[in-house]
């Protein structure tokens, strides 16, 4: 009997068309713009590979890339242990756990442009709660002119914003572990660390990988928060990849901005490919 499954392709077609409109077509246009000195479509001049040559030939790109990678590493090192610890401390499957989950989710729904404003108010020494605390301990906190302080503030703000996501994902993974595993561990008198290391951590690895992918992508494209705090300063110390791109778009340099976008797209492809490989390897191990 003929196995006719062409209907499945028909059902996928609307999604494919939508993906083409919102993904492929703008990407092709941006690629085309990257070969022009372009202000409006009528005022464009072919420059070939000039923008790409300028971009890869200047050290600023590599500095911004280094800062972005460092920022991603720092926030992953802070947010994942913290998020997992919060998830482990949450009560399992009770009414109170729902309350705590809602509290954890609140920062996730705050508009991104509001978050730096909230934090700038919080650290204000005249009327901010954290600002009062900093003044009380005598710390000369200067996020405008001290690069380390700006970094601390941005990492703190990002952690407040996103640690809830890691905690919720880890909690969902922990909730799905069958009780039989934990009972068997209790019979064997396993310590809390052993239960975490050999039962809980392997079981939540899948959801943590998803969280890792989301956090890596989000942290690489941090813009609104970092720009509002110090506009990439002091002296470019917090000028991440996305801020450099934003600066070019803001200056109507659409040609160089398009070349930069294509380069970032290639970098994101590499990151996504590595994640896909690790997910595939993990699935093979589990199978």
């Amino acid at each position: 009997m003929k196995n006719d499954n062409s209907m499945a392709w028909m059902l996928v077609l609307p999604a494919l068309i939508l993906l083409c409109i919102v993904g492929v077509v703008p990407l092709l246009a941006v690629f085309n713009y990257s070969f022009f000195d372009i202000f409006t479509l009528q005022d464009r001049f072919w420059v070939g590979l000039e923008w790409y040559g300028d971009l890869v030939g200047t050290p600023e790109l590599y500095h911004a890339l280094g800062r972005s990678v460092l920022f991603t590493c720092v926030i992953l090192a802070v947010q994942f242990p913290l998020g997992i610890a919060i998830a482990l401390l949450l009560p399992q499957q009770t009414y109170t756990s729902s309350f705590f989950l809602i509290v954890l989710a609140v920062p996730l729904v705050v508009p991104w442009n509001m978050i730096p404003i909230i934090w700038l108010n919080l650290i204000n020494p005249d009327y901010g709660l954290i600002g009062y605390g900093i003044k009380a301990i005598g710390w000369d906190f200067d996020y405008k002119f001290n690069a380390l302080h700006t970094w601390i503030l941005i990492v703190l703000m990002d952690t407040w914003h996103w640690v809830g996501l890691v905690a919720i994902l880890a909690y969902s993974g922990l909730s799905s572990i069958p009780q039989a595993y934990l009972q068997a561990a209790a019979i064997d008198s396993a310590s809390k660390w052993q239960v975490f290391r050999f039962i809980q951590l392997p079981k939540i690895k899948g959801v943590l990988m998803m969280g890792l992918l989301l956090r890596v992508m989000d942290s690489l494209m941090i813009y609104t928060e970092a720009f509002t705090i110090n506009a990439g300063g002091p002296e470019g110390a917090t000028s991440f990849l996305s801020l450099e791109l934003g600066e070019e778009i803001g200056g109507f340099d659409y040609g160089p901005a398009a070349a930069r976008s294509v380069l970032y797209f290639l970098l994101v492809l590499v990151v996504a490919w590595i994640f896909q490989l690790s997910l595939r390897r993990q699935n093979e191990k589990e199978a």
Binding site: V25, L28, A29, F31, F35, F36, L41
Partner: peptide, 14 residues
């Protein structure tokens, strides 16, 4: 398609 700023080199590439 003019808004996509097509040229022969980019068209051939794609």
């Amino acid at each position: 398609m003019d808004w996509m700023a097509w040229t022969w080199p980019t068209a051939i590439f794609f």
